[in-house]
Design a binder for these strands. Structure first.
Lengths: 239, 239
DNA sequence: GAGTGGTCTAGACCACGGT
DNA sequence: CCGTGGTCTAGACCACTCC
């Protein structure tokens, strides 16, 4: 088999698990067997297993072995982790026929005290303040309220805001390293009611994101207000 | 300093970061320095750093070093990860003066086809079907709808449901290994409206959980319907 | 007591960042 | 080019599970 990186091992094992290769015993082979099979070190095997555990496919028990988790079509749905950095745009990405962005507001401003406590940006720094509505298949589904640190982000224009800001960042060498997110359910405010296709609903989901560049500096504070019944968020919790 | 486990190193570094010890350079010392300081191996040091990264405190850049993420009181709030296995009970746990559970429904039933597609349990197995309202400081805040695989869970009674089911599981040797969760915002149904203190709101948050024991078997399907404006969920996404 | 994963050490080489 | 984190190897001992 020759030398394999942990990534190769991971993909082979993942494929086998998903095709039912191990479903009789509901166990992975023990580490030593995998080491022999892939002619690799224990480090690589263990790293591959750790990756499978992060996917919610297996669970390791000391002294017993690596157990496969049951996966039905329903539970597998939970594995489509929405762990991407690109905001709501990519949620349910495959399904959309149509996708439009309407820029509701675009301005530069200086952070004052109220905005500072709200966004965690320091008082006095210049930010882009942008509001955009995401129209999915003709439905006004998401209201994005962005604040970008103007000193740490490439120059933004309304035209760029109409397309993909993240793509623009990437092209101009800004790397988003980490995003901290908070999810809430909130009563809709006047702006939400005016801009979103809420129908009879009077609440929104609010996904608050704080993004950091690869120097550890906060570059973004964003609230994404989205309509009910259309969006899912997945999470995996391990003991 | 003697020998340190990765956990000791982790806690020392975490403490230093939070008290501003490294805030001038916004960098951690390089791995070799930490190895020397803690008189440990690279493995332990790297594992400690990996843990800090999981907490959203640092970010490693190949060729550059380990960068500290900015943390303000606001962004630190995002670090209180609600990654616990005990359901909604522990959300905002410290703040509560008062906490009560009202068992709305408690029955045993056999999974039929509709329930199977809903809960991912196989048709024909016996389950406990339980509905409970969580009353926090006098407010009917959460409606829990549980289905437990009766073959894989210790015997349940209404009295136990009135207290902590998870504590009962723990006492009886049932280990919850992994929980897959899905979060949604939904229009409230009649049951929600009847049982929860929704006020003027007509939507709920729905936290769907599928729990697995340490043999990889699904033991639980739960929907927790919660009122708007009261609950937060945190998430960390790394590149 | 045998089997298995968890932790740890001591080394090596590679890939990327900055000079 | 040097410094740094990422990957990997080969081994050791410990903690837990199960017979």
């Amino acid at each position: 088999m020759g030398k394999q990186t942990f990534s190769d091992i991971y993909h082979v094992l993942k494929d086998r698990i998903l095709t039912g290769h191990y479903s009789v015993k509901m166990r992975l082979p023990i580490e030593d067997e995998l080491i022999t099979e892939f002619d690799s070190s224990r480090y690589a095997v263990r790293k591959a297993i750790a990756q499978l555990a992060k996917d919610g496919l297996v669970y390791s028990v000391k002294g017993r072995g690596v157990v496969l988790l049951e996966h039905t079509p329903q539970t597998q749905q939970f594995n489509l982790a929405l762990n991407n950095l690109n905001g709501l745009q990519s949620l349910n990405a495959e399904r959309h026929l149509d996708y439009q962005t309407e820029v509701v507001a675009f301005q530069q401003r200086i952070v004052d005290q109220p905005l500072s406590t709200h966004t965690a940006f320091e008082v006095g720094i210049p930010v882009y303040a942008i509001q955009r509505v995401r129209i999915v298949d003709g439905i006004r589904a998401v209201l994005d309220i962005n604040y970008f640190n103007a000193q740490r982000t490439p120059t933004l224009t309304k035209t760029i805001a109409q397309h993909s800001i993240y793509q623009h960042f990437k092209k101009n060498g800004l790397k988003i390293a980490v995003v901290k997110r908070m999810l809430r359910v909130e009563s809709a405010n006047e702006l939400d009611k005016a801009q979103l296709a809420l129908g009879d609903n009077n609440c929104i989901g609010n996904m608050i994101s704080i993004a950091f560049n690869d120097e550890g500096r906060q570059v973004e504070y964003t609230e994404s207000h989205f309509i009910p019944n259309e969006f899912n968020f997945n999470e995996l919790i391990r003991n």
